[in-house]
Design a protein around this nucleic acid. Structure first.
Lengths: 158, 158
DNA sequence: CTAAGTGCAAAGAATTTGCAAAACG
DNA sequence: CGTTTTGCAAATTCTTTGCACTTAG
């Protein structure tokens, strides 16, 4: 069967090679923000006949087609995530201790940035917002040392 | 005499070499967001005995000391700007047509992002906001092609 | 078939680093 | 004087590309 990203590729009229299908599948399954190296690793697990050059070429292509979005969270390498199914833009909060990324959307914020751009004499084309934060001290909740654990992604709208 | 950045370096106990003094001066004069290549160019104009490796090392050092801030506006290279004298954070609007950068600050925005982080269970450590926009159609104002020149920074607070 | 995609290894671009010489404090 | 810093060139890291070979449509 056909992964979500593969379907989008077909819609855009892209030639579907074996390697593209695998990369599309890996991307469809990802709910994080892998870099090219990581995509290559995941794809290779599925099919060893994929070179990293092809991964680079494919993500670039899919980005041009609007199927993927490139992110830069620092650390030198570009990271990718599928463009949201909903068209609502979302942003990222990076936990400075664990490096984990939480996504959120906020309509007040969308409104505000649009207004700011306008005040400066510009039409807003796009924008990006990244928050860097530290998990808030919990009021009462006993546990030992708190290593890396899974954060709960959620919306932040009123 | 001593440039602003040089003074900050001394305060931080950094050894002031000739090349650091020049780089500090160049940074003190800059009111834009030069990349390393550009800093090297400006510094070389003042003193030819500076290598680009030293500029890279210096900029990294000053960033660690909190004297400089690294920015990434896309385009592959890191850009730098002195940490603001006031502690108010400011952000950037990048003109997608000309590449020009306009700075702005907005207290509503600061409040909002703090609230968003809190709602997600985090204390906000820092954040960055970048707007990409296109100059709004002016009612009437003729001009030819507009190459890279200095944009007019301004505040956007109510 | 034939234009488009792939692998490989080499090329690029940005940044870092090892080492001997030079300079700050 | 002993660190620290610098220059230079070589090394790293991430990404792109040229070219001969495959393949989807």
């Amino acid at each position: 069967m056909e992964s979500r990203i593969e379907r989008l590729c077909v819609e855009k009229g892209l030639k579907m090679t074996g390697q593209r299908r695998v990369i599309a599948l890996v991307l469809s399954e990802a709910d994080d923000h892998p870099d090219v190296e990581e995509l290559y690793r995941r794809a290779s697990r599925r099919d060893a006949h994929i070179s990293i050059a092809t991964v680079y070429r494919t993500v670039r292509l899919l980005e041009e087609k609007g199927i993927l979005e490139k992110r830069d969270f620092g650390g030198g390498r570009a990271r990718y995530e599928p463009t949201g199914e909903d068209h609502a833009s979302h942003h990222h909060l990076i936990d400075v201790d664990s490096g984990k990324v939480v996504e959120f959307a906020n309509s007040d914020h969308e409104r505000l940035v649009r207004a700011i751009a306008e005040r400066l004499g510009f039409d807003l084309v796009s924008h990006r917002l990244e928050l860097f934060g530290r998990r808030r001290e919990q009021p009462r909740r006993d546990r030992g040392a708190l290593p890396d654990s899974e954060p709960a992604p959620l919306g932040a709208n009123p």
